[in-house]
Design a protein around this nucleic acid. Structure first.
Length: 348
DNA sequence: ATCCAGGATC
DNA sequence: GATCCTGGAT
């Protein structure tokens, strides 16, 4: 009975799948490089958001060599606003490894790909099935959702047991003759029909067999056990300018927004003033609050308070790791979304 | 305003 | 098990 249900699932899924129904830029790029780059971008990121980034990135870095020879600032510049910036740094590190150490030869199988920075179980399965047609089953959020609903699996997907169970199930279901096509099919199905919210059960080809539909518990799946709670954090940013130039600094490569640029930040308004007084005469320092922004990360709830301080050209000196940049040249630097949000508001 | 989806790393 | 981001749904 269960075997029958599995076979039915695979056959129906492949029957349903029409690749051209969901055209994506990277689907036409059949080479390993393009597949790898797109899969890294697609980690934790929706296709609609990736699309414009992928096109700009690919135009500028059309092959392994062009990426391997790039520097981190340039790669982050193309990545700015897309989030999870260690993906970009790992991608560059990996490109240099493959190009310079492996003489441009890509890893040959799943386990070799796992050894590449930024490539985990999902990405290794995606690359080796799409590019080499090797029989590795992808296990991403779509697959967890589709399988948990169809088979009515209520083991939490974020438990060790759940990961193992779903990995085995998805491997059994995989069409070993056409793993790339099958993997693409199940993820497209999850993204367009068996969606997390507002699933299109009324047009679903599995209506008669899906456990979740039959039990009227579609929204119950997939089952998860833990959710992270957010800590509240306050950040004080200094918008220090003479009207034509502005100070920015680069964030460290650990912690949030690694390697991205932003205004100098402080723990408190008092520390900001204290630092300013070391550099400029007290009477010239006038702070004006120009923004109060909220920004949410996975487990941080950031309240960013931005103060503007106008000083004369002659007053501005270079300090430690601060960079004095012409306002019109700000576009040369990679900023995170909180800064971009501020620029948008401020330029109005 | 709050909640949530989506993989890798150490 | 904690830490990395953003945008979209509600």
């Amino acid at each position: 009975m269960l075997e029958e249900k599995k076979h039915f699932f695979r056959d129906q899924l492949l029957d349903w799948y029409q690749p051209e129904d969901r055209p994506l830029p990277w689907k036409n790029d059949k080479n390993t490089y393009a597949i790898w780059v797109s899969e890294i971008m697609l980690q934790q990121t929706r296709t609609d958001q990736v699309r414009p980034y992928y096109q700009r990135f690919f135009k500028y870095f059309p092959d392994l060599q062009s990426l391997a020879e790039a520097n981190e600032d340039t790669v982050l510049h193309f990545w700015q606003g897309m989030g999870y910036y260690n993906r970009a740094r790992n991608l560059l590190k990996a490109a240099k490894h493959i190009y310079f150490e492996f003489e441009g030869r890509y890893p040959e199988d799943y386990h070799a790909w796992i050894g590449i920075p930024g490539v985990g179980p999902y990405t290794a399965a995606a690359i080796t099935s799409f590019s080499y047609n090797q029989p590795n089953a992808v296990l991403d959020g779509n697959v967890f959702r589709v399988l948990s609903r169809y088979f009515g699996v209520n083991t939490p997907i974020d438990s060790q047991e759940g990961k193992k169970l779903f990995q085995e199930l998805s491997y059994q279901l995989l069409d070993k003759n056409n793993p790339g096509l099958y993997n693409q099919a199940i993820m497209d199905f999850g993204a367009t029909v068996c969606k997390a919210r507002n699933p299109k059960c009324e047009i679903c080809p599995f209506q008669q067999n899906c456990t979740a539909i039959l039990e009227d518990k579609v929204a119950f799946y997939p089952v998860k056990q833990k959710r992270t709670q957010k800590k509240k954090v306050k950040l004080y940013y200094l918008h220090l300018t003479d009207g034509k130039r502005v100070f920015i600094k680069k964030r460290s490569t650990s912690g949030i927004w690694p390697g991205l640029y932003e205004f100098p930040d402080f723990e408190s308004r008092a520390k900001m003033i204290g630092d300013l007084q070391l550099l400029f005469p007290k009477e010239k320092i006038k702070l004006k609050k120009t923004a109060d922004l909220r920004h949410q990360l996975t487990h941080r709830d950031i309240k960013a308070i931005i103060y503007q301080c106008h000083l004369n050209t002659t007053d501005l000196e270079k300090k430690k790791d601060w960079l004095l940049v012409e306002t019109e040249n700000l576009t040369n630097f990679a900023f995170h979304q909180l800064m971009k949000k501020y620029f948008r508001i401020f330029n109005h």
